[in-house]
């Protein structure tokens, strides 16, 4: 009775759990979308006049919309990876750890589940951006969705990997402050990298989110300062790296 099918079914139900939990926590959705909405509304509208510069090649709101989208995908994803810590604190983790399923199936289910909820939040933010007047006209919605999914799955895995080695929620706050915020600010989500000073530009090129932002710009507004192929390659590499790290570290958790 033990087949690959069983692993798939298990992964599907782990995915389902993430979706159910997401849909039940309305406040979490509101909380996670509040900040990016402010960014969009205040930066997008407020700086519109001041930053009508030629280096953007369009409105500032258009420019930051893919950046804010990337931010939403990243924070939502890393947070749902962090569920592992909550599961550990509330005991549920044990139930999954002693089950006769591969740990990798659990990681994959969690990663897909977290990515699904992150993409959903991303679509909401795109919708709000469109209401504010951003020119979101993707050449292919399917491609955009797939890209959003890939970026999200990478960051959920990143969250799982970090959470697997953390004992409690405090350590996770630290990671959020020292990883997530720098990753976001260095990613060129808010300003064009071409006009940034050298050290910042170099740091940006080491930031995987930079490539996510540029790839999203490509697909969502049709303008980007980087080749789409390069961006996709870096994101794919980041996905493979974070997923294997997540599986490896999750497998090492001692129940």
């Amino acid at each position: 009775m033990k087949t690959e099918n069983h692993e798939l079914v298990a992964a599907y139900f782990i995915w389902k759990r993430e979706i159910i939990r997401f849909l039940r926590s309305k406040s979490r959705i509101a909380g996670s979308l509040g900040m990016p909405l402010f960014f969009l509304a205040i930066f997008g509208m407020g700086l519109e006049g001041a930053l009508r510069s030629s280096s953007l090649g369009g409105s500032y709101l258009d420019f930051i919309t893919p950046g804010i989208l990337a931010m939403v995908l990243m924070t939502a994803s890393v947070f749902s990876g962090a569920i592992v810590i909550m599961d550990r604190q509330f005991g549920f983790l044990k139930e999954t750890l002693v089950a006769p399923v591969r740990r990798s199936s659990i990681v994959i289910g969690k990663s897909l589940g977290g990515a699904t909820t992150a993409v959903f939040q991303g679509l909401l933010i795109l919708f709000f951006a469109a209401i504010l007047g951003a020119g979101v006209h993707p050449s292919s919605w399917l491609m955009l969705l797939l890209l959003m999914f890939l970026i999200s799955a990478s960051f959920v895995s990143f969250g799982i990997a970090v959470a697997s080695v953390m004992e409690d929620m405090h350590g996770f706050q630290l990671v959020m402050n020292f990883f997530i915020m720098p990753l976001f600010f260095l990613s060129g989500a808010l300003f064009p990298l071409s006009s940034a000073p050298e050290p910042i530009r170099i740091a940006s090129y080491l930031d995987p989110l930079t490539y996510a932002v540029e790839a999203l710009r490509h697909l969502a507004i049709g303008k980007s300062s980087m080749g789409f192929g390069l961006c996709l390659a870096v994101i794919a590499a980041f996905f493979l790296l974070s997923t294997s790290a997540a599986i490896h570290l999750f497998e090492r958790i001692e129940s």
Binding site: R17, I20, R21, R24, S25, D87, F90, G91, F92, L93, K94, E95
Partner: peptide, 9 residues
């Protein structure tokens, strides 16, 4: 288990 291990949500 000795400790609770249900998903409360």
């Amino acid at each position: 288990f000795q400790d609770p291990s249900l998903d409360e949500e």
